[in-house]
């Protein structure tokens, strides 16, 4: 009981700080979200590799997963053991409510920062490289 108390006190303290999510951690969180219900070590690795075109080592991924779980952003449960895994169970990850808040917080801070950039700053860029800037605006417009 006392341990639980201490654990909760620990969480309480970490909440006092701002949510912290590194770049790679954010990618992992998003991928876990994409793979909803099917997110385990290998699938997350493949998803990131195929979507972002970058190599991910098992070590880096597992470390990030463990850190996120310790922070309380992810929770895990053990799944079935299959033959190609030599009888080892899969460990599935899902995003916790607290994890979702962290992701939203990260996103909103990004947006706040984007919004805080004065128009002039972007204009200076456009003034020098007009064709590219036009292109950019066009693409943005298209996306929206």
């Amino acid at each position: 009981m006392a341990q639980l108390l201490i654990l909760q006190i620990g969480i309480y303290y970490s909440r006092m700080k701002k949510y912290q999510l590194g770049e790679f951690e954010e990618v992992v969180m998003l991928t876990v979200g994409i793979l909803y219900g099917e997110a385990y070590g290998v699938s997350i690795k493949k998803e990131i590799e195929s979507r972002l075109k970058r190599g991910v080592s098992v070590g880096a991924l597992q470390t990030a997963l463990r850190r996120l779980e310790d922070k309380g952003y992810l929770k895990s449960h053990e799944g079935e053991a299959t033959e190609e895994r030599a009888g080892r169970p899969k460990k599935y990850f899902t995003i916790t409510a607290y994890g979702k808040k962290a992701m939203e917080y990260t996103r909103s801070t990004r947006e706040e920062l984007w919004n805080a950039i004065p128009k002039v700053a972007l204009k200076v860029v456009t003034g020098f490289r007009l064709p590219v800037a036009d292109n950019l605006q066009l693409e943005t417009g298209n996306n929206e």
Binding site: V58, Q62, A81, E84, R85, R88
Partner: peptide, 15 residues
């Protein structure tokens, strides 16, 4: 605590 699940991942990738 991590050994089994990571070893599973490693095996799957190896195959």
């Amino acid at each position: 605590k991590l050994r089994d699940s990571i070893e599973g991942d490693l095996m799957e990738l190896y195959k």
